[in-house]
């Protein structure tokens, strides 16, 4: 109540022009240490994925059996794996596949989820009941298991991974969008639009959609984190990115059996690389969420 009072106290007749809302979010982001550090890490790995091939000392795919399982040294900073491939080179370019697959899957999930959420939230009724129950049932199966099941039937390929993760994340986004839309459609501006004889498409996309963009953005950045999590995990259990990619999850999968032998360098650096990306994405998501909540 007091907070409200403070707000009306500074409620000047006219404040900033409208486009400043976007600028305000960007400004908040540019001042958020959490967001910036996450963004920097992601930028680093994107650069590695794009230009890594020109920077690394060895060919990440070239095996050199004589120098297999060499511990870290000045020649091989992160050592070599059981095929004698340079771990440092592999880690640097290992982000390539996951940084394509995970964002693509997230994009797919966002598009499908937003469309579903918008329709079910706006029309409600029978369609909503059926779709919601179905989505609930899908969400009752843990994502990894769902992916496992689907990939067994679709076969392993990057496209399959994108489709499967995209589809299995869509219900989460749809649920967020649906509840936001259901709140929005109770507001009087929707009634006002009906009293102007606007079409359902206009009401959904011009009136409601702009107001649910913030939750969609927040939810999809959070989902991007989970997508990287999921892709890495699928690769680790052999259902994701396939050899001979230098993908991190895949590398850990092929090498972790030798942990007991003390060959820690074959997995540790890949693990740290995954950790850095996942944490970075979540720092970004945290920043985005904070920036939208601040308004």
């Amino acid at each position: 109540m007091t907070a409200a009072e403070v707000k009306t106290g500074i409620d000047r007749p006219v404040a900033r022009p409208r486009h400043d809302r976007v600028r305000l979010v960007l400004r908040t982001l540019s001042r958020s240490g959490v967001f910036l550090s996450g963004f920097a890490i992601i930028l680093f790995w994107v650069c590695c994925a794009l230009f890594g091939n020109y920077l690394v000392p060895y060919d990440p795919l070239a095996s050199d059996i004589i120098n297999a399982l060499v511990p870290p040294s000045s020649a091989h900073w992160f050592g070599t794996d059981q095929l004698g491939r340079d771990v440092f080179s592999r880690v640097i370019v290992g982000s390539r596949d996951i940084l394509v697959v995970a964002p693509a899957a997230t994009l797919l999930a966002t598009v499908i989820g937003s469309a579903l959420g918008l329709c079910t939230g706006y029309f409600r009724g029978f369609v909503d009941d059926v779709v919601s129950r179905l989505m609930e049932a899908v969400m009752a199966i843990p994502g990894v298991i769902l992916a496992l099941l689907a990939i067994v039937s679709l076969g392993t390929s990057k496209v399959a991974v994108i489709v499967v993760i995209g589809l299995s994340f869509a219900p989460n986004i749809a649920r967020t969008v649906r509840s936001a839309v259901m709140q929005e459609r109770e507001l009087d501006y929707v009634a006002a639009a009906h009293l102007r004889r606007e079409s359902a498409v206009h009401v959904m996309f011009v009136e409601i959609l702009p107001n649910v963009i913030p939750p969609i953005l927040v939810e999809s950045t959070v989902r991007l984190g989970y997508a990287i999590f999921a892709v890495a995990t699928l690769s680790f259990i052999g259902f994701g990115i396939q050899p001979p990619s230098p993908d991190w999850g895949l590398s850990i999968s092929t090498n972790y059996g030798m942990i007991n032998g003390g060959f820690w360098w074959t997995v540790l650096f890949d693990a740290l690389a995954i950790a850095s990306v996942v944490i970075a994405v979540n720092l970004v998501a945290d920043g985005v969420q904070g920036a939208f909540n601040e308004r």
Binding site: A232, T233, I252, Y256, V267, L268, A271, A275, I279, N282
Partner: peptide, 13 residues
């Protein structure tokens, strides 16, 4: 946010 196999590997090590 860390995948279990990442933390798992580090913990095992």
């Amino acid at each position: 946010v860390l995948p279990e196999f990442v933390t798992g590997i580090i913990l095992i090590l």
